[in-house]
């Protein structure tokens, strides 16, 4: 489904990703872990199409297309979904209506009819229940006045409605209390399927107690240093990232984003 080959990316002349290789097949869950500044968020934003990155070399192929040639909205229509680390508040734009517009844009792209108002309402109610999102959030402006946990739940809710082929969760677990984390993780688990792949970007092993990954990759200094199965995450939990012994002198992730 997704094939990243020797990807080198820089921001304003500064190398951030220094040769990433990653193969993700349908049905797989990949966890990408790593310390702050390792390039995790750059990778997730880049896959979703955020501007401001220079591709120095390498390729990203998604469903046999050159992903890097697609606009962010085209990626969305092709089934890529990014759950944001910091979901954006958009006052004045209705949460549910946005989702309907997004869903209809995807359907239109695939030559399907728009979803009827009745069917859509049924769908959002069902999916809101899945992530225990109160229905009052449906009629509010996008993320406006939502708490941190509510924003993350809203991201998973959107993902549940849009049913992407490839879902990228960028530190969705960060800042969540254990109850919210459980809800978010259960939402993800219910969406796991043979056709769908997940990339979980996370700083903590904790998320992987709830979502069992097929593969774990350790990203550091812009490269995947090690790959393995879920036991690698446990190893990281025990030993921290210090063993990587690499200077992470690149820009902080906040700055990079």
């Amino acid at each position: 489904m997704l094939s990243i080959k020797d990807l080198h990316v820089s921001i304003a002349g500064k190398p951030i990703l220094k040769g990433i290789n990653l193969e993700v097949k349908a049905g797989e869950v990949h966890a990408i872990m790593g310390p702050n500044g390792s390039g995790k968020s750059t990778l997730s934003q880049l896959l979703a199409g955020r501007d401001g990155y220079t591709i120095d070399s390498g390729s990203v192929t998604y469903k046999d297309q050159d992903l890097l040639e697609l606009a962010p909205e085209e990626r969305s229509w092709e089934g890529i979904f990014l759950a944001f680390q910091y979901p954006v508040e958009i006052p004045g734009v209705n949460n549910t209506y946005l989702l309907r517009a997004g869903l209809n844009a995807i359907r239109k792209h695939h030559g399907q009819d728009e979803v009827s108002a009745v069917d859509f309402l049924k769908l959002v109610r069902e999916k809101a229940k899945l992530v225990e999102l109160d229905e009052s959030f449906l009629s509010r402006s996008v993320n406006q006045g939502f708490s941190g946990g509510e924003k993350k739940r809203n991201e998973i809710f959107q993902m549940a409605v849009l049913e992407p082929s490839l879902a990228i969760l960028d530190e969705t677990d960060s800042g969540l209390d254990i109850d919210a984390l459980r809800v978010v993780a259960e939402g993800v688990n219910k969406l796991r399927s043979e056709e769908r792949a997940f990339i979980l970007i996370t700083h903590y092993q904790r998320l992987l107690d709830y979502i069992e990954p097929d593969f774990v990759h350790v990203l550091s200094d812009g490269q995947i240093q090690r790959s393995g199965d879920k036991t690698l995450a446990l190893e990281l939990e025990r030993e921290g990232y210090a063993w990587l012994d690499t200077e992470t002198d690149i820009a902080s992730e906040a700055g990079a984003a």
């Binding site: 979703a48 199409g49 955020r50 501007d51 606009a71 962010p72 909205e73 990626r75 969305s76 229509w77 979904f81 990014l82 944001f84 979901p87 954006v88 958009i90 734009v93 946005l98 989702l99 517009a101 997004g102 869903l103 844009a105 995807i106 996008v142 959107q158 849009l162």
Partner: peptide, 9 residues
């Protein structure tokens, strides 16, 4: 970007 990522041109 957020809106684009949700399918809005």
């Amino acid at each position: 970007f957020y809106l684009q990522s949700r399918g809005v041109a």
